[in-house]
């Protein structure tokens, strides 16, 4: 699927000699209207790729921050149909920023995989990450996504050993999402050295861009990963900030998120220069 938004964006970031910043927000958090404003503000703030969480009642791989985001969203009445409509509206003003939906399989299964693929494509979505759909069960969704030109992004984790990796990579497309810690979203952070080792190992087996997420909260952490990986994913820290702002009934949530994303983007964009400047970067060592 060369020529699509995801490939183009990763190629552009690579050409600039930097990692991409992937930001995650839950659709409809704290409500659909605010969520649409947040979404619209993300590209200008420096998000290169946007992951949008489809809310689910039972997010078993997510930590407290994203669990609460899911509940806020569902409490505000968000449906899958509304999520797709929000992306469609976003595409009226931004046809370049890739959007990847992330969530659990049941709402997609309930919607119907074929209908989902058709409507997601029409809305301007580029790919999907389905947390509880490992390669062994992907047959119910993967063909529909492929038929309509949508990427099915696979996840590799610290438990993905050499024996398991080929199964994960088989049929992977768009990019490979490396879950840096064995745990839920928003958990502790992995050591930078471990991430570097893991990314190098994955790069030996695939030409897909490697995005690293889980446990990345601060600009410093994002920068450390950006020296090794093709993309850095920040989710829980943003969702936490949205939750805190919603709690105090702030009316400037999109601006606050934009400021937070701006700081992350700045760190990611300058990470390799900074790293090269002090002589510790892997590029220089290599």
């Amino acid at each position: 699927m060369s020529g699509d938004r995801l490939s183009a964006r990763f190629a552009a970031c690579a050409a600039e000699g930097r990692a991409a910043l992937v930001t995650f927000v839950t659709a409809g958090d704290p409500d659909l209207e605010t969520s649409a404003e947040i979404l619209a503000a993300l590209p200008g703030a420096g998000a290169d790729v946007i992951e949008i969480g489809m809310p689910f009642t039972d997010p078993m791989a997510d930590g407290p921050a994203i669990q609460r985001g899911n509940l806020r969203s569902l409490g505000a009445g968000t449906t899958l149909k509304a999520v797709l409509a929000m992306v469609k509206a976003f595409r009226q003003t931004d046809d370049a920023t890739p959007i990847v939906l992330m969530g659990y399989f049941n709402p997609i299964l309930s919607f119907g995989p074929e209908r989902f693929a058709i409507e997601a494509k029409a809305a301007g979505i580029d790919g999907c990450i389905v947390v509880d759909l490992p390669p062994e069960e992907a047959g119910e969704l993967a063909p529909a996504l492929a038929a309509h030109g949508l990427h099915l992004v696979r996840l590799a984790t610290p438990t993905t050993d050499a024996q398991r990796l080929p199964a994960v990579l088989s049929g992977a497309s768009g990019f490979l999402y490396y879950v840096a810690v064995a745990g839920v979203t928003g958990a502790n952070s992995a050591a930078a050295a471990d991430i570097a080792t893991a990314v190098a190992r994955l790069k030996a087996s695939t030409s897909l861009p490697i995005a690293v997420g889980f446990g990345v909260r601060t600009p410093d952490q994002a920068a450390a990963i950006a020296t090794h990986a093709d993309a850095v994913v920040v989710g829980s820290a943003i969702v936490d900030a949205i939750g805190a702002a919603a709690e105090e009934r702030a009316n400037d949530i999109p601006a606050r998120v934009a400021a937070q994303v701006g700081a992350l983007a700045q760190a990611v964009r300058t990470a390799r220069y900074e790293s090269a400047g002090v002589g510790a970067g892997p590029e220089k060592a290599a």
């Binding site: 078993m60 490992p134 062994e136 069960e137 984790t157 050993d161 398991r164």
Partner: peptide, 20 residues
């Protein structure tokens, strides 16, 4: 062999758990 009873069953878990 894949844990299915007809259309039911299976292994719908996060990738971290698959090797386990």
């Amino acid at each position: 062999a894949n844990g299915h009873f007809g259309q039911f069953g299976g292994r719908y878990v996060a990738e971290t758990l698959m090797p386990l």
